[in-house]
Amino acid sequence: MKPFAFERARNVDHALSLAAAAPGARFLAGGTNLLDLMKLEIEQPDTLIDVGRLPLADISETAGGGLRIGALATNTLVASDPRVRSRYPVLARAILSGSCVQLRNKASMGGNLMQRTRCAYFMDPAMPCNKRLPGSGCSAMGGLSQAIALFGASEFCVAVSASDMSVALAVLDAEVETVRADGSVRRRPVETLHRLPGDAPQVDTDLAPDELILAVELPPPPSGGQVWRKVRARASYVGALASIAVAGDRVALGAVAARPWRARATEAALAGGASPREAAEAELVSASGADGRKSLVRRLATDAIQESRKGGRS
C-alpha cells in the first residue's frame, strides 16, 4: 500500500474543506472496498479523509412519508431497520443478499454506492483495463468473465456495477443528496448517479472530488408487490450474475450495466398490457452480449414480475 496522509474529519464542513484542499484525497467510511483496492494499489489516494465518525448514520421519516437514510448508516443497520423491513423489503432483501455480515457491519450507505466494479480484470493489476489504466485496453471483452454488461457498455469498457443495494434503490426512485465545499447541496436519482463508461470508463460517477454523500432519500413505497431476486454462483457471499428488483410496476436489473439498470422498456410494455415474459423481452432486444446471459435475465425477470403480481413483499 502506498503511503498516505490520514485526516480525521471533525464535522462535515471540516471534511469538505480537507477535500477541497487535497484534490488527490478520498473520503473513507467503512473502507471495505477502498482499502482492499489500496492494498492492490488500484487506488492510490495521497490523503484519506476519515468521515466515519460524522453524525450521518440516522434513519428518519420524511415529511412526505418516505425515509431518509444517512450516508453512514451501515448496511446492517439499514437492512435491520423495522421501517425498511416493512415498507421497503426489496431494499432489505437486496442488502442482505450482498457480501457477508462482517462486511455489511462496516459498509456504509454512501460507501456501497461508491464501491467500484468487481470485474476480474479491473481487480488484476497485471491485466489491461481501461477503467484502471485508461488506454490500456479491455481484457473483459472476449475474456473469461461472465459478469459483463448487457446494457450501456462502450467499446472501452463492459464492467458492471457490483452494488446489489443500488438496484433496489433505483427501483424505489431513491435520490442521493450530496454537499460540496462551497456549500451547494444537490440531489440526483440513484439511477443516474453512475456514469455509463463511454470513452472515460475510469470515471464512475459525476460526483466532484469535494462532493460528499449526506443521505439517500426514499419516497413513499409504490403500491404493489416488492420482489428481489439474485442469481449467483454459490449460495452466499458472492456477487450477482444477474439480479432484479421489482416494486409495483417498476423494474430494475442488476449486474447488467455500469449502473443499476431501470428496465424502462419492460415497464412500458407492462403498462401496455404485455405478459411478464414479453415485457422482459422488450428490454432485452437492446441488450448486447452472450445469449446465455440474456436467457438468464429473461427467465429471472419473468419470474420476478410474476411473483410481484401476487402482491407479496419478499
Binding site: F6, R8, T32
Partner: peptide
C-alpha cells in the same frame, strides 16, 4: 474476524487509525 464495540468485522479491511 474480531469484535469492535461488540460488532464483528474483518480486521484486515480496517486501518488501526480508524479505531481511535
Amino acid at each position: 474476524t474480531v469484535l469492535v464495540n461488540g460488532v464483528r468485522i474483518n480486521a484486515c479491511l480496517s486501518l488501526a487509525v480508524m479505531h481511535d
